[in-house]
C-alpha cells in the first residue's frame, strides 16, 4: 500500500536515549507510521533530507500502554512504530527543525 513519504515520518523522538545515540552512533530515532517498513522509512528519510544517506534502519513496535486506571476510568495510549535510522558517517540531521 502506498503511503506518501510525508506521512511516513510522524515526528522525531527526542529523549535522553535518542540524543545519546545521535551524538555517538549517528543514529536518529523517529516515530513512523505503523504500516511502514524499513525500506519505506529509508526512502522517506532520504527524500526529506536529500543530502543524507541512510545506512541502516531498525524498527521496533512499541506496545500500547493501557491500564492507567483511576477508579474505573481506563486510559489508553496507542502503540506506535519506532524507527532507529543509522546514517552514513559524517551525515547528520537537525532534529529540532520544525518541532
Amino acid at each position: 500500500m502506498q503511503i506518501h513519504w510525508r506521512n511516513i515520518i510522524r515526528r522525531p523522538v527526542v529523549t535522553e536515549k535518542s540524543s545519546y545515540q545521535a551524538d555517538l552512533y549517528n543514529q536518529y530515532t523517529f516515530a513512523v507510521d505503523s504500516r511502514a517498513n524499513k525500506v519505506q522509512v529509508k526512502e522517506a528519510i532520504e527524500l526529506a533530507w536529500p543530502d543524507v544517506t541512510v545506512e541502516k534502519v531498525r524498527i521496533a513496535n512499541m506496545p500500547p500502554k493501557r491500564a492507567r486506571r483511576w477508579r474505573r476510568v481506563t486510559t489508553r495510549k496507542p502503540g506506535w512504530k519506532k524507527a532507529i535510522v543509522t546514517l552514513s558517517p559524517g551525515d547528520s540531521i537537525d532534529l529540532f527543525e520544525g518541532v
Partner: peptide, 8 residues
C-alpha cells in the same frame, strides 16, 4: 519530556 532533570 524524554529527559531526566538536568540531562537535557
Amino acid at each position: 519530556p524524554g529527559f531526566r532533570k538536568g540531562k537535557a
